[in-house]
Amino acid sequence: MIYRYEDESPLNLAVHKLFEVIISIEKYPEFIPWCAAVNIVRKSHCKIIADVIASFKGIKGKYTCEVTFNLPSIQQNCLIEVRAVQGLFKYLHNVWELTPQDENRTIVKFFIEFEFKSPLFQKMFGIAYKHAQKKIISAFKKRIYLLT
């Protein structure tokens, strides 16, 4: 089963501050539910390869993701795109689109679509799917406001 979730929110923050929270994936275990560990494998100007360990109800799984992005500016949208390249997911595609409205206001569009390889993860996560996604988005918003 393929899961999808979308969210769009206006936030009273500068695009570069939002970008920093989203792109600092090595800090995700500090505030994202079910993210147990992140190891940056390779990082360049506009690409990150990372190994992520997810833990849900005592069951752990690992996946490698490729994160591509363009740097934020007040003149153009910033896109951060994440794809799983091996591991826990059969398929994972995640996009953050940050659209600056002015110096201190940004529209944030979030999209994720994924399917687990493991029937166990699929079953366990499926029960609480919408709640889990809302909790993750809420964790990002809380982190953003705590750091600003």
Results as ranks from 00 to 15, higher is better:
Glu103Ser: 11
Ile40Leu: 11
Gln76Met: 07
Phe89Leu: 04
Glu8Trp: 05
Ala84Val: 02
Asn39Lys: 15
Phe116Asp: 11
Ile2Phe: 15
Asn70Trp: 06
Lys135Phe: 00
Glu103Gln: 12
Val82Thr: 15
Tyr3Arg: 09
Ile127Asn: 05
Ser138Pro: 00
Phe111Thr: 08
Ser9Met: 03
Ile144Thr: 01
Val15Glu: 10
Asp51Met: 02
Ser24Ile: 06
Ser73Met: 03
Leu79Cys: 06
Asn39Leu: 11
Ser118Val: 01
Thr99Met: 14
Glu26Ile: 05
Val15Asp: 06
Ala128Ile: 14
Tyr129Thr: 02
Leu79Gly: 04
Pro100Ala: 01
Thr64Ile: 07
Trp96Met: 09
Lys141Val: 00
Lys47Ser: 10
Leu18Lys: 06
Ile107Gln: 14
Lys57Leu: 13
His16Lys: 15
Pro119Trp: 13
Pro72Gln: 10
Leu11Glu: 05
Tyr91Thr: 12
Tyr129Ser: 01
Phe31Lys: 12
Met124Arg: 07
Phe31Thr: 08
Ser9Arg: 15
Arg105Cys: 07
Lys62Phe: 06
His16Trp: 04
Ile40Cys: 10
Tyr3Gln: 06
Ser118Glu: 07
Asp7Trp: 08
His131Met: 10
Gln86Lys: 13
Tyr63Ser: 01
Glu81Thr: 11
Thr148Asn: 12
Phe19Ile: 05
Pro72Asp: 13
Gln122Arg: 12
Lys141Ile: 07
Gln86His: 10
Ile49Leu: 15
Gln133Tyr: 01
Ile112Tyr: 01
Thr148Tyr: 13
Cys65Met: 13
Phe121Gln: 08
Glu81Met: 07
Glu66Arg: 12
Leu146Ser: 08
Phe125His: 09
Ile137Tyr: 10
Thr148Phe: 09
Val67Gln: 11
Ile40Met: 05
Asn70Tyr: 04
Lys27Gly: 03
Gln76Asn: 15
Asp7Glu: 15
Ile136His: 06
Pro119Lys: 13
Pro29Phe: 13
Met1Ala: 10
Pro10Tyr: 15
Ala128Asn: 04
Thr64Asn: 03
Thr148Gly: 03
Ala54Tyr: 15
Glu97Asn: 06
Lys109Ser: 04
Glu30Arg: 12
Glu66Gln: 12
Thr64Pro: 00
Cys35Ala: 10
Leu71Ser: 12
Tyr28Glu: 11
Met124Tyr: 00
Gly58Met: 08
Phe114Thr: 06
Val82Lys: 03
Ile49Val: 14
Glu6Ala: 07
Asp102Tyr: 04
Lys17Leu: 12
Glu6Cys: 03
Ile59Asp: 01
Ile49Pro: 00
Ile107His: 08
Ile137Gln: 03
Thr64Trp: 06
Ile32Arg: 07
Leu146Phe: 00
Glu66Asp: 04
Ile49Lys: 14
Phe116Glu: 11
Glu113Trp: 11
Ala132Lys: 15
Val38Gly: 02
Phe125Asn: 08
Ile144Glu: 02
Ala132Asn: 13
Phe69Tyr: 15
Phe121Ser: 05
Lys109Gly: 02
Tyr5Asn: 02
Lys141Thr: 01
Ile107Asp: 07
Ile25Gly: 10
Lys57Cys: 04
Trp96Leu: 09
Phe31Ile: 12
Ile80Gln: 09
Arg4Asn: 14
Ile22Thr: 07
Val52Lys: 07
Ser9Gly: 00
Gln75Gly: 00
Ile127Arg: 13
Ile137Gly: 00
Lys17Asn: 14
His16Arg: 13
Ala14Arg: 11
Pro29Ile: 12
Ile2Thr: 14
Ile74Lys: 08
Tyr91Leu: 07
Asp102Glu: 04
